[in-house]
Computed example of a mutant assay.
Amino acid sequence: MVKSLSKRIGNAVILLLAVLVLNFTLIHIAPGDPVEVLAGEMGGATPELLAELRADFGLDQPFHVQLFTYLGNVLQGNLGYSFYYDKPVTELIFDRIGATLLLVITALLFALFVGTALGIASAQKRNSLLSNVVTLLSLAGFSAPVFWIGIMLILLLSVALPIFPIAGMATADEPEGNFAYILDVVWHLVLPALTLASIYLAFYSRLSRASMLEVLESDYIRTARAKGLSRFLVVYKHALRNAVLPVVTFAGLQFAQVISGAVLVETVFAWPGLGTLAFESILRRDSPTLLGILFFSAVLVLVVNIVVDIAYRIIDPRISAK
């Protein structure tokens, strides 16, 4: 496992370097000038001031000089300085990453456990009402755009039935650091997490159902039943471990999609995370902030995939032996 982990980390470093170069190139060739955006925010600027700003930000340098300067700064742990917020990008990211991780992890865990439980339950009773309901909800979850689900939940549970707050992460006048504040954050988290989890809940329920159906037809399951073992032991001791392997694999692979989906969800619910910061950075052509967010997201995805690979080997000892 140590040898495999070292190889994965080495590949991850190479991939991160490629991501840095690709992101920098794409943002560099994208239309728009951050200096002109800043000038517009200031109400206008003279050509001399525009030239001075470009020199201060290093935008007057050739592309290859900007690229190598950026790569050198990243290797030193410096993600640059925000054009718009006038702050280090690292500081901006760490101010917002907590909110995004709270949303993403909550949504992913909810979708993973609830979806898997529904899929396994429906697999045991193929033609039951539960199985048909899970299939119907899965199709609905796959078909509906995540932002539309968010808007519908707001209209239903925040406007028509004022149960949950419409936007934000906490009530503005709520003090931090106490139990009431934690409850307030949880109350604000419900709708964004449900919205983000809806698509992946449908996916995991279908995947776990199909995987469990396949495992239940295996020879070793028929042997366990022939020995007189209870249905609980057959399903949850012998079949479950093999049935969840595809679910665990896709959970790691889809972590990047969950983060990208969080951009839309955070925008709909005004959730103060990296998604909202990325959206604002795109509008304002704040390329250092956007590059920092993309790089940090890539690091998160790679770390999660390595953790999933380790978990996969723990769940299935046959892989650990290879």
Rank of each mutant, 00 (worst) to 15 (best):
G77C: 09
R96W: 09
I105H: 07
V134K: 03
L155N: 08
F110S: 03
A160Y: 06
F203V: 02
L71G: 09
G77D: 12
K7H: 05
E217Q: 14
E214H: 11
I9D: 00
F63L: 12
L213R: 11
F203Y: 05
P162Y: 07
L22P: 07
V74P: 09
E280M: 03
S260V: 14
I14M: 14
G119C: 14
T116R: 10
A180S: 12
A55K: 08
E36R: 04
N242Q: 11
L129I: 10
V303D: 02
W187K: 12
L108K: 02
E280Q: 01
G252L: 08
V234S: 06
I199R: 13
G115F: 03
Y312E: 12
V248E: 11
L59F: 03
L26W: 01
F295P: 02
V247T: 08
I154Y: 04
P34V: 11
V303K: 00
D309Q: 04
V65Q: 12
L75A: 10
F255E: 04
D86N: 14
A107N: 05
A243S: 15
A107W: 02
V299T: 12
H188Q: 05
N73Q: 15
L277W: 03
F57N: 09
L302M: 10
G292N: 01
D219V: 06
A45P: 01
S4W: 09
A12W: 00
L240H: 10
L189G: 06
V89C: 01
L129C: 05
P88D: 03
T69H: 12
F94A: 03
A251I: 01
A55R: 07
D316V: 12
V299S: 10
V244Q: 09
V301R: 13
L92H: 02
L109G: 04
I149G: 13
L161G: 02
G77W: 07
S320D: 13
S122H: 09
V104C: 05
F203W: 00
L15T: 15
A45L: 11
G292Y: 02
V2P: 11
R241A: 11
S138A: 15
